[in-house]
Write a protein that binds this DNA or RNA. Sequence first.
DNA 1: TGCTAAACGGAGACAGTCTCCGTATTGTTC
DNA 2: GAACAATACGGAGACTGTCTCCGTTTAGCA
Lengths: 182, 182
Amino acid sequence: MRADAKRNYDRIVEVARTVFREQGYDASLDLIAKQAGVGPGTLYRHFPKRDDLIDAVMQSWVDGVNETAEKVLAHQGSPRDLLLAWFEEYVRLISVHKGGPAKITCAMGDDGSPIRTKCEVLRAAGDRVLDRLRAEDAVRDDVTALQVARLVGGVATVADQSELDLAAVRPMLEVVADGLLK
Amino acid sequence: MRADAKRNYDRIVEVARTVFREQGYDASLDLIAKQAGVGPGTLYRHFPKRDDLIDAVMQSWVDGVNETAEKVLAHQGSPRDLLLAWFEEYVRLISVHKGGPAKITCAMGDDGSPIRTKCEVLRAAGDRVLDRLRAEDAVRDDVTALQVARLVGGVATVADQSELDLAAVRPMLEVVADGLLK
DNA sequence: TGCTAAACGGAGACAGTCTCCGTATTGTTC
DNA sequence: GAACAATACGGAGACTGTCTCCGTTTAGCA
């Protein structure tokens, strides 16, 4: 990659991160280009689809996912507490940007999505939590990590679109957790 | 309302019903206007916001909701069967149009939404099912009909956006049902 | 039949996506 | 350090969708 190309690439991602945070994932891409001081052509050459840009923005986010999972697993408590703690962190993780829950949950099952790899990390983290619970025989074993991700992702999506706060989300997560535990 | 106005109103709703069914709730409104043989101005005068048009389209749908609820309640079986039957019908009802689950679930908590009244009918139907289960002391009583609607709506939203079929949705509904039952 | 309030409709302003292609920059080769 | 590919740039503009304004038409009443 040529030096100027890399410069622009980085600049666009940095601007996009800010704009997405402020306006959500459906912010105008031309605006991001302008704010980054490049033409729309440049943006679209680097990131042909919106999801490609989102993927680049999420790069740093992935580290946080693993850290969070570790922290949750380190915490001692009942299986129910563990599951709920993970659910809450999961919702928080995918809700950092408006539109995130729907985007991520949707991409999770879509093999062709550019942000698929990021979702994979998220799912793997969820799997670690589930494995721990399965080892304790605390959770029903006919449910996959993908299904759990979709259940919690569904709750997060509704919360995101209806602008609910964590307090309103919590009881719904409890229902899902109780339905999952043996 | 003047005769020609009513004529156009009805024509637009009829066309919108078809177009929404074929293309989902985010179909172009100008296209609907053109197809109905009116100018965009006419469409926007009758339906200032997209949701106003959706609301009109849903008018006939409301009857189906009540019928379905009655049918589910008439069916004999365990509380779990009843709940699952209702969930499946619920998902089916709100998924007739692409984008429907998100739209309806979101509007359900939004006092200012034009389609609020339609959602009210849906929630009331869900409440009838819940009441029946509460009478049998089969379901936890710290959960409201709105929360249940959001849980199932969340599953339906994910299914809609990820284009999952009912077979894939069923196990997730089971988790929600089990979490809800005592 | 004439009048007025109501309704129409389409031109066009505005915003967002995305592409094409002439121009500019990079980095390599001699 | 000059010349030359290869690579990248950027902005004009095509396209699509939303929504409004306002001159024109029509319905319904007196």
